[in-house]
């Protein structure tokens, strides 16, 4: 017998694949990211390169992948609670934990396929515009973007599990996007201002780099930067070491620590959402 979570995951995938809205968002994601990757070549003052095109693609993906994932998953459980289909599903043998797991895996797989598919648009654009495609950098960018998307699916399923209605799930998702994606850097800068008395300049202390990297988007940004800097020649993509005061990268700013930050962001909201869901009265 197939495990219940696997059956639920497969159904979630089949169901989400039929959503036109999801594919529209994925198409927008791919197009905007591809345009951003190409845009640098239009600025005459900058000597652009394929790796720099990928940096821009990553900048675009870190804004769009989270919102795509949130849209794909914020109704995963709250929508079923509002429509009442959760009662049919939980009237069958699966436990609430298996439902949450199946939802994360199914919707995570959808977003992984969607984001990877969207980024595939970037490859020919970079190839044509810059005359070459750094394959390792591109593959790494795709992988990190998929990880970022799956982390936001896990956050969204956690939010969805914790809330009983669409509107509350939407409100929480928007608040999360604002806080974690749009406002985090600003808050970090204000914190720096409060501590150091000035805004951060060219050289930054390690604690400030860490503060920037503690959001899932910051961690993604730091990890892609580490990857692309290591693959680029010269100073086209400045490495973290070059930005840090003292020039030494501590362990907590290494690329693998960024993956740990992403994993924590994926796990904690999901577990909290599950705990709340497992205790909820589904009246």
């Amino acid at each position: 017998m197939t495990a219940a979570w696997a059956t639920i995951a497969r159904k979630e995938f089949d169901d989400a694949v039929r959503s036109r809205m999801l594919w529209a968002i994925v198409a927008v994601f791919g197009l905007v990211t591809a345009v951003m990757a190409a845009a640098l070549s239009l600025v005459p003052q900058i000597e652009s390169s394929a790796v720099m095109g990928l940096v821009l693609a990553g900048q675009s993906a870190q804004m769009l992948a989270p919102i795509t994932a949130l849209v794909a998953a914020y109704l995963a459980i709250s929508g079923e609670r509002e429509s009442g289909s959760i009662k049919v599903l939980l009237g069958l043998p699966p436990s609430r934990g298996e439902v949450v797991l199946g939802k994360v895996l199914g919707r995570g797989a959808v977003i992984a396929v969607g984001l990877a598919g969207g980024l595939l648009l970037v490859a020919p654009v970079v190839l044509v515009v810059y005359g070459g495609l750094p394959v390792v950098s591109f593959a790494g960018l795709v992988l990190l973007t998929v990880i970022l998307g799956v982390v936001f699916v896990a956050i969204a399923v956690g939010i969805s599990a914790a809330t009983g209605t669409r509107s509350r799930a939407m409100t929480l998702s928007i608040a999360l996007y604002l806080g974690v994606v749009l406002l985090w850097d600003g808050v970090a800068q204000i914190t720096y201002l409060a501590v150091a008395g000035t805004f951060p300049g060219e050289q930054i202390p390690a604690w400030y780099a860490l503060l920037e990297s503690l959001s899932p988007v910051g961690a993604y940004d730091a990890a892609t930067n580490a990857l692309l800097a290591s693959q680029s020649t010269g100073a086209a993509v400045p490495s973290l070491a070059a930005r840090l005061e003292g020039g030494v990268v501590p362990v907590y700013l290494s690329w693998w620590f960024m993956l740990v930050v992403l994993a924590v962001w994926g796990a904690v909201p999901l577990v909290l959402g599950y705990v709340r869901f497992s205790r909820a009265d589904l009246a």
């Binding site: 079923e80 429509s83 009442g84 289909s85 009662k87 049919v88 009237g91």
Partner: peptide, 8 residues
């Protein structure tokens, strides 16, 4: 089970 207020 046929629940009350179910959806599909």
């Amino acid at each position: 089970i046929l629940p009350d207020g179910y959806g599909l």
